[in-house]
């Protein structure tokens, strides 16, 4: 082997070793790149496994949220309707009282008739001597108490003494009938009549208000 051939031979060994070393390093880098790529994929897959659970949970929360929001809205809507209805009832009942007053001023004969009926009704309940509490202006109507007593006696078979109280009625109209000893009181004022019929009036008012 010549010196030159030996040099080439040795150079070949060196070159081969460098090539192999580079290959080893390249292979290591390739493995690392592949490992990283797999890890990224694995990370994505592991997170994605929770997607269905998360979405199911979100749907449950959505449903609860929807129920809460709608239930609050329904409560609020009911309160709005109820307020409107109460406002309407109060307003019309106020008008009813005013119409009562108006009627009592315009139809004095009718009003006297009403007072008489209300008094008799009260005496029928009390069934003993009574006094009548009237508005000052109604005392001027000159109600005939003797004939009233007679009428009551005919109707219920009991003689009762009927007198006017010195007390004056503080109401829009009507009468308060009170047993002389004050134990029994029948309120037949306009306000009391409206209050007594309130429930029935409510349904009538709503029916009339909502019908076309």
């Amino acid at each position: 082997m010549t010196e030159e051939e030996l040099g080439r031979f040795l150079e070949r060994i060196r070159a081969d070793s460098i090539h192999s070393a580079n290959t080893i390093i390249e292979e290591a880098r390739r493995k690392v790149a592949q490992r990283i790529e797999e890890s990224i994929k694995q990370g994505r897959e592991d997170a994605f496994k929770q997607r269905e659970d998360m979405l199911r949970d979100a749907r449950t929360k959505s449903m609860a949220l929807r129920n809460r929001v709608l239930s609050e809205a329904r409560l609020k809507a009911n309160a709005i309707r109820l307020n409107a209805v109460n406002r309407a009832l109060e307003s019309i009942l106020h008008d009813v009282l005013e119409e009562f007053i108006e009627w009592s001023k315009n139809d004095r004969i009718g009003y006297m008739e009403l007072l008489k009926n209300l008094i008799i009704e009260g005496i029928e309940t009390i069934r003993e001597d009574v006094e009548l509490i009237l508005k000052e202006e109604d005392l001027k109507l000159n109600l005939d108490l003797t004939s009233l007593s007679r009428e009551v006696a005919d109707k219920i078979g009991v003689n009762v003494k009927v007198t006017f109280s010195k007390e004056k009625l503080d109401a829009a109209g009507g009468v308060v009938i009170r047993s002389v000893d004050g134990r029994i009181v029948v309120h037949n004022t306009f306000e009391a009549i409206i209050e007594r019929f309130k429930r029935r009036l409510h349904s009538r008012i709503l029916k009339m208000l909502l019908e076309k």
């Binding site: 080893i24 390093i25 292979e27 290591a28 880098r29 493995k31 690392v32 790149a33 490992r35 990283i36 797999e38 890890s39 990224i40 994929k41 694995q42 990370g43 994505r44 592991d46 997170a47």
Partner: peptide, 22 residues
């Protein structure tokens, strides 16, 4: 050197997994 690269790569792969998961 290859062993070092692979060892460092393991750490990078772990970080890559966490980043991808996050």
């Amino acid at each position: 050197k290859a062993e070092e690269i692979i060892a460092e790569g393991e750490g990078e792969a772990k970080k890559a997994y966490e980043k991808s998961y996050r």
